[in-house]
Amino acid sequence: MKNKVVGIEEAISHIKRGDTVMFGGFGGYGTPNNLVQEIVRQNIGDLTAITEDFSDGYKPFEMGLTALLSHKLVKKAVMSFAGGQPRVTEQVFSGELEIELTPQGTLAERIRAGGSGIGGFYTPVGVGTVVAEGKETRVIDGKTYLFEKPLRANVSLVKAYKADTFGNAIFKYDSISFNPLVAMAGDIVIMEVEKLVQPGDIPPDRVQLPGVFIDYIVVQEEVAP
């Protein structure tokens, strides 16, 4: 079987200029920060980013996903929360960044739909707000819903705590957030892990993300801020 465990440089070289890239994590936590730094190092630009946010969980330093904005590598973002992320406001107002704001639960479900072969879904969230502009609405059993489309990416980047060499992974606490959803919705899926173990070390019924979704594994023992 193909060896999925590769170096960080090789893994990130699968992202092409202009790609759509999806990121796991929330607020800079559970984010594949080493992989993000490698995108910056390889200077891969014109990206469309699908992410909950661009927070550096590690204020006051500018790190985490916000580094992609500082280096002007993102032209469009599908995202949910931009509070406390001055780069987003700056680059939207200067015209460098286009954003599509999506309610957080809708974003999670759009990604899940994208990874699950679902062509979209109806949700009550956003009805009567700017989120509904230009979208189909439908009344189901007397309640109004909005139609939301699925999301997929050329490359998905995720972060797990521990995985075996096949990619069966587990997460620590709430660093799981968007990671298993994002891992299902990318054509190529790259996973950063802190600890690599052998097949069988994680019992099958404790696996939170099946390795079948994973293409490349990058081991980074030190978490990057």
């Binding site: 946010d53 995202m79 929360f81 931009a82 001055p86 309610p103 957080q104 639960g105 009550p124 969230v125």
Partner: peptide, 24 residues
């Protein structure tokens, strides 16, 4: 009706989970 996520013309805030929570 509730407005709590955006002051037009000011910072870009994003709704985060507020719409989902308020709706559900």
């Amino acid at each position: 009706n509730l407005a709590n996520w955006m002051v037009p013309g000011k910072k870009i805030n994003g709704m985060g989970g507020a719409m989902d929570l308020a709706t559900g």
